[in-house]
């Protein structure tokens, strides 16, 4: 069931390669549907954060992991999506269903513009360029009257016609659906001509150009797509949290997204999901541990709170040292182990 020979292109390019994958997919969907009935609001709120982070991480992985273009400004695109939707729904009264794609498109448009320097810049220089873009956006959000400074602005609830999304459970279904759709689109994209062009550019751009792949077109497209994902993530985050402040989208958000895709696995869709779950989950796991220990070992829990960021860093460094391919590497090894079991190779 797990292994099969692919005898034609259609089979090789299939989104879901075999019955095994399809079965797991159905199980996953069923699990997602029943999960909220067993979780409390706090646990659901963590899953909601993970879902939004997954969408943003997928976008960044398309850019860094698949196309090899470094960006330190992903947080800025998330901010553009958040503020675009916040302003469209709040000031102009545009419904969420329209503001959602528009916020993605606005981020994508600016992403296309930021992508232009990528034709001449590489590596650290490109990283610096995108970092500067992030600072420009942050400055604008802080100082533009429309965005209301560093105390931020209120954002409306998500309304679908007369129906308003209010509870964590409702948000869970909505965000999970978008995260699922984002994964599906990313998986679909990377197996297409566009995705293969991205990979060719990442592996050796000169060779890719020699093979007829337009570097300009695909690099800019990668920036646009990545920013579109970020914009959608920003829009969902804005309506989920119902308040946006520039401080939520600073350089630390961009770094968190980079950590997600590196820890999850660069150049893999599953890696983006796993990385988003891990990086979003670590602070919450620390909270749970502190709560467990605070009555019995108050000093230890105090130490954990004091060195929260240090613990976060140690986990990241440890993972990179012992599993450079990220969580996807662990997943792949485990999969191979069971596939070949009881043989070692």
């Amino acid at each position: 069931m797990g292994s099969s020979f692919k005898v034609n292109y259609k089979e090789d390019m299939a989104l879901f390669q075999n019955l095994w994958v399809k079965t797991w997919l159905v199980i996953l969907i069923l699990l997602m549907i029943i999960l909220p009935f067993f979780l409390n609001r706090y646990q659901l709120s963590i899953l909601n954060e993970m879902g939004i982070a997954t969408i943003g991480a997928l976008g960044l992985n398309l850019l860094i992991g698949y196309t090899g273009q470094i960006s330190l400004g992903h947080g800025a695109f998330v901010a553009i999506g958040a503020y675009t939707s916040g302003l469209l729904t709040g000031k102009l009264g545009i419904p969420f269903i329209i503001s959602l794609p528009l916020s993605g498109l606005m981020a994508a448009l600016l992403g296309l513009i930021v992508g232009i320097p990528s034709l001449r810049l590489k590596g650290l220089y490109l990283a610096l360029g995108t970092l500067a873009f992030g600072f420009v956006i942050e400055y604008i959000l802080f100082h533009w009257d429309l965005t209301q400074g560093d105390l931020g602005m209120a954002v409306k609830r998500i309304s679908l016609g007369q129906f308003q999304i209010k509870t964590q459970k409702q948000y869970f279904y909505l965000i999970a659906a978008f995260a699922f759709l984002a994964v599906l689109c990313a998986k679909n994209l990377v197996r297409s001509k566009i995705g293969r062009s991205f990979i060719a550019i990442r592996d050796r751009d000169i060779a890719a150009e020699a093979m007829g792949i337009s570097l300009a077109k695909y690099k800019i497209m990668a920036f646009g797509l990545s920013s579109f994902y970020a914009g959608i993530a920003g829009c969902l985050a804005a309506h989920y949290n119902r308040w946006i402040v520039p401080g939520s989208f600073d350089i630390s958000l961009s770094i968190a997204y980079i950590a997600m895709i590196i820890m999850g696995g660069l150049g893999t869709v599953l890696g983006s999901v796993l990385g988003a779950i891990l990086i979003t989950g670590i602070p919450h796991a620390i909270v749970y541990i502190v709560d467990l220990l605070k009555d019995t070992y108050p000093a230890l829990s105090g130490f954990i709170v004091d060195f929260k960021l240090g613990i976060f860093g140690i986990i990241i460094v440890g993972t990179l040292l012992f599993e450079p391919a990220g969580l996807y590497g662990i997943y792949r090894r485990t999969k191979v182990y069971w596939k070949t079991w009881p043989f070692k190779y």
Binding site: V155, W243, G247
Partner: peptide
């Protein structure tokens, strides 16, 4: 201040 704003909703 900004954190307080963020948790008002």
């Amino acid at each position: 201040s900004s954190g307080s704003s963020a948790i008002i909703p």
